[in-house]
Design a protein around this nucleic acid. Structure first.
Length: 589
RNA sequence: CGGGGUGUAGCGCAGCCUGGUAGCGCGCCUGCCUUGGGAGCAGGAGGUCAGCAGUUCGAAUCUGCUCACCCCGACCA
């Protein structure tokens, strides 16, 4: 490919709207252009990267035995009502009406459609297991698209769905996808951590997210260096915290203080001149419709899935101020555990406090010096909140750390949620009708591209891994009118292309500095410079994007030398992937 | 959906307060010159100043409404 024909509109300056590094660099490198909020065009160069990621995903899905199919983005809303997700998906679902009046939606995901297909096709246990996938555009009416191509209203997703006869089969299918994901991200050359994620009805370790560490990431990861435990904050457990605090028989009785108009934790603590961690807040939820209360330290956040499990409830929602008043007789802002009439659960961090400041269950009143266990009961204590930095690891007890990550993949054991709701059953060997057990597995393909840039860039631009680079090699002929330079350029290009490499020749009539800057910006892994100066000495210059300096190779054998250098690097990366695979095998056994 | 901000040439911005010929840098086109890290000189093209409605002799500038985009938060199967 000739640069002059490639349409690569690089920008010297950062577009004002771009904040995230990947957003800035993909724009500046001429890879994407914004059409509207959360909608991006991929220009030729950007599309090449997206397609390289797509190809790797497809190859590994095929290798894992998944069957590719293609489902429509346009889906009847009735299908969503059938699964029960029309309500839960809410405004995120893009909806429209056909000219005939049919109410349709643009698919944000495809559990409903694939389940509809399968219930018509699969009848017998002999047809199971089967896993199918597609690579297709998804639509979600995100209330706030952001960070360039990281969160958009329209995006390319690889979504796979497994169908199994029993839980053991599901585990096998799940493990195959899990392993395929590791291979995909290894091959893409992007760093990732696998974290436990909040899971559905089956529970246990049935959901994992693949995260690329990045400060731009929207997800919070809790990790323990000593045990290797890693989980999304939505899921992360807090290890055992000792409670109650040693009893102090001399502790004075709690004191009622006037706190007029001080409702929030921040207001109360500021007013009383105490740290938020010295206070506790009583939160009221409706567990399957019944009011329940939870006591959490002032600086902590409640974790609703943990609460739902703790109360053994199917649904758990925060109670609105009216129902709180009705259930407790106390207006929001002054609730406390002392003498509370509804069921109370206490987070272990509160149970461990010697004394605590809480609401007085009366307008404009808070209590100080309240002793857990003395002034309110501690018969229901547990891990009810989001983990924070320094919390003990559930495995090792060592302090855990907090970091940000970009979710690029998610594997999930669904169970029979959709097959039951939509009647996707099979007949077992005894002729019994049984709901098919499902799993779903998603990869945000655009996010692979964005995450690769977030993880690989410097002040000069993008640093693509060889596997994703739009072109692996750029050749820069410095004197485009010198026949010797041109001939050498052509012969090296030919040799590399024949070896299966993607090569771009910067044939522009521009000064060398312009070309070097652009090649660095768009992140081409290997740069070859051919100039009269080097030719006099019989050499040309080769520089890797990741290296600080260039090295010279003799002209006579240049094409083969460079070809072998790139192929060797490719093989080294493949070997690295293999090493990781072996290491994973050792870990899991 | 709440809070904040911004819309002027492809990109980055000034002009607005105090109404009176729409500007600068980069990029783009022509020519000369130059050629190993975003050169220099000369000439040139390109704008319904986001839109609509007011005020005014006259609006990029003042007023009102609308729209779009960005950031923080809420939300995120």
């Amino acid at each position: 490919m000739r640069w002059s024909k490639a349409l690569i509109p690089t920008l010297k300056e950062n577009p004002a709207d771009a904040v995230a590094p990947s957003h800035q660099l993909l724009l500046r490198a001429g890879m994407v252009r914004q059409l509207g909020a959360g909608a991006y065009s991929y220009l030729p160069l950007g599309l090449r990267v997206l397609q390289k990621a797509t190809n790797i995903v497809r190859q590994e899905m095929d290798a894992a035995g998944a069957l590719e199919l293609l489902m429509p983005a346009l889906q009847p809303v009735d299908l969503w009502k059938e699964s029960g997700r029309y309500e839960t998906f809410g405004d995120l679902l893009m909806q429209l009406k056909t000219s005939g009046g049919t109410h349709v939606a643009l698919g944000p995901t495809h559990e409903e459609v694939i389940t509809d297909i399968v219930r018509g096709l699969i009848r017998s246990y002999k047809q199971l297991p089967v896993t199918m996938y597609q690579i297709q555009t998804k639509f979600r009416d995100e209330p706030r698209p952001r960070f360039g191509i990281l969160r958009t209203r329209e995006f390319l997703m690889k979504d796979a769905y497994s169908f199994d006869a029993n839980v053991d089969q599901l585990s096998t299918s799940y493990d195959a996808m899990y392993e395929a994901y590791c291979k995909i991200f290894d091959r893409c050359g992007i760093p990732y951590v696998i974290v436990e994620a909040e899971s559905g009805p089956i529970g246990g370790d049935s959901s994992h997210e693949f995260m690329v560490p990045s400060s731009t990431g929207e997800d919070t990861i809790i990790q323990c260096a000593s045990s290797g435990y890693a989980a999304n904050v939505e899921r992360a457990e807090v290890g055992k915290i000792d409670w109650p605090a040693p009893a102090n028989p001399d502790a004075p009785a709690y004191v009622s203080v006037s706190t007029p108009y001080k409702r929030t934790i921040a207001e109360v603590c500021k007013f009383l001149k105490i740290a938020e961690s010295a206070s506790a807040k009583l939160l009221v939820f409706l567990a399957d419709g019944n009011p329940v209360s939870v006591l959490i330290r002032g600086d902590h956040e409640a974790n609703e899935p943990k609460l739902r499990r703790a109360f053994g409830a199917k649904t758990l929602v925060a109670a609105d101020p009216d129902s709180i008043q009705k259930a407790t007789g106390v207006p929001i802002g002054f609730l406390g555990p002392v003498g509370i009439k509804i069921p109370l659960m206490v987070d272990q961090s509160v149970a461990a406090m010697p004394t605590v400041v809480v609401g007085g269950n009366e307008v404009d009143i808070h209590f100080t010096g309240v002793v857990p266990g003395r002034d309110f009961v501690l018969d229901q204590v547990g891990d009810l909140r989001n983990a924070v930095a320094g919390d003990p690891c559930p495995k090792s007890g060592a302090p855990m750390t907090v970091s940000q990550g970009i979710e690029i993949g998610h594997v999930f054991k669904l169970g029979t949620k959709y097959s039951k709701a939509m009647g996707a059953n099979y007949l077992d060997d005894k002729g019994q009708e049984i709901p098919i057990i499902m799993g779903c597995y998603g990869i945000g393909v655009n996010r692979i591209v964005a995450a690769a840039v977030e993880a690989g860039h410097d002040s000069n631009g993008i640093i693509w891994p060889l596997a994703l680079a739009p072109y692996q090699v750029a050749i820069v002929p410095l004197q485009t009118t010198n026949p010797e330079v041109v001939a050498l350029t052509d012969s090296i290009e030919k040799c590399l292309v024949e070896a299966g490499l993607d090569v771009i020749v910067d044939d522009r009539e521009a000064r060398p500095g312009v070309k070097f800057k652009d090649i660095d910006l768009i992140g081409i892994p290997l740069r070859i410079v051919i100039g009269e100066r080097g030719l006099k000495e019989g050499t040309l210059e080769v520089k890797w994007r990741t290296d600080g300096a260039a090295h010279n190779v003799p002209v006579a054998t240049a094409a083969e030398t460079i070809r072998d250098e790139v192929l060797t690097k490719q093989r080294a990366e493949a070997a690295e992937c293999e090493q990781r695979k072996i290491a994973r095998g050792v870990q899991s056994s």
